[in-house]
């Protein structure tokens, strides 16, 4: 029954979408917001480019000028500002238990919507012949059950499996998405990389880099300047790309989220923007900014 309702809803909404989509023509382009009607936004540092592109595409303001309107105060502060009513919508990584608790204490409910996809990728040096690892092999490597590249189709060389520092976003992603509750082997200091740039450098630059295995988020690594190329590898035979991350065939996917207060009125600017970000125009904006759209 739920499926029928969802399908009916879909048809209705498609009709509504087409009904309202004639506002953009070659001669007259209208935008859903003006800079003054745009809701107050905040968010994570990682979503600043996304937020700026949203503002630009939704108001018609140039991207350079759009940046002058957007200030994100990092993930936790953005949640605090949303809960305190100091902003109306935030673009962030997923809320923590603490942030849920803060909202509950304030008598608020948070409405959390994925707004772009993100992939969690593994990379090796371009000289490494290995092109693919299975999820099981990755877990075995990080639990020291597999220690040599020859065990996964590579050369007879020790695997140097780098990890990030404990509280980094990448390490959280690694533990949640990849290890899924299993404890990774304790990485010695020389294998515990603090910065994401350093991780890429370790894989692409150093003498023993052809033995290295590292991980990161797709958005960062795909566009980062590096002296030599680090090579992304497939997981379970699926190469990380915008398409495979968006359609979910790539095994390790997560998202950035738009969050509003659940009591926002239906016609509020925050809800209107949320809805726009999930529309084709909004998703095209996300793609333009270098993120992986939802569809």
């Amino acid at each position: 029954m739920k499926k029928i309702i969802a399908a009916a809803l879909l048809v209705c909404m498609l009709a509504a979408l087409f009904g309202c989509s004639q506002t953009k023509t070659e001669t007259e382009v209208t935008y859903p917001f003006t800079p003054d009607s745009y809701p107050r936004v905040d968010g994570s540092t990682a979503t600043i480019p996304l937020s700026e592109q949203f503002f630009s595409d939704a108001t018609g303001v140039s991207l350079g000028d759009a940046s002058t309107y957007i200030k994100h105060n990092t993930t936790h502060n953005a949640y605090v500002n949303l809960i305190n009513g100091d902003c109306d919508i935030i673009f962030v990584t997923s809320p923590s238990e603490e942030e849920y608790a803060m909202a509950e204490e304030a008598g608020l409910e948070l409405e959390v919507h994925p707004v772009v996809n993100e992939g969690f990728i593994f990379m090796v040096n371009e000289k490494n012949p290995v092109e693919n690892l299975t999820r099981e092999q990755i877990v075995d490597i990080y639990t020291d059950k597999i220690t040599n590249w020859s065990e996964v189709g590579g050369e007879d060389k020790e695997i140097i499996a780098y990890q990030r520092e404990v509280n980094s976003g990448s390490q959280t992603g690694f533990l949640d998405l990849v290890m899924d509750g299993r404890e990774p082997a304790d990485a010695p200091t020389e294998k515990r990389i603090v910065g994401m740039g350093e991780l890429v450098e370790a894989i692409s630059g150093y003498d023993n880099s052809d033995q290295a295995l590292g991980y990161s988020y797709y958005f960062y690594v795909n566009e980062m300047y590096v002296r030599e190329a680090a090579k992304l590898i497939s997981v379970d035979g699926v190469y990380p790309s915008p398409e495979t991350i968006a359609d979910g065939s790539y095994p390790y996917t997560t998202a950035y989220y738009a969050v509003i207060r659940a009591d926002e009125p239906e016609d509020s600017p925050a809800r209107a923007l949320l809805n726009w970000t999930l529309s084709d125009d909004g998703q095209n904006a996300a793609k333009e900014a270098g993120y992986v759209p939802l569809k």
């Binding site: 909404m13 498609l14 009904g19 859903p32 809800r271 209107a272 809805n275 999930l278």
Partner: peptide
């Protein structure tokens, strides 16, 4: 997402 798309197209008139 589709609901969103619908709203987006008509968002200008309903914003306060």
């Amino acid at each position: 997402a589709l609901i969103a798309a619908a709203f987006a197209g008509c968002a200008q008139s309903g914003t306060e």
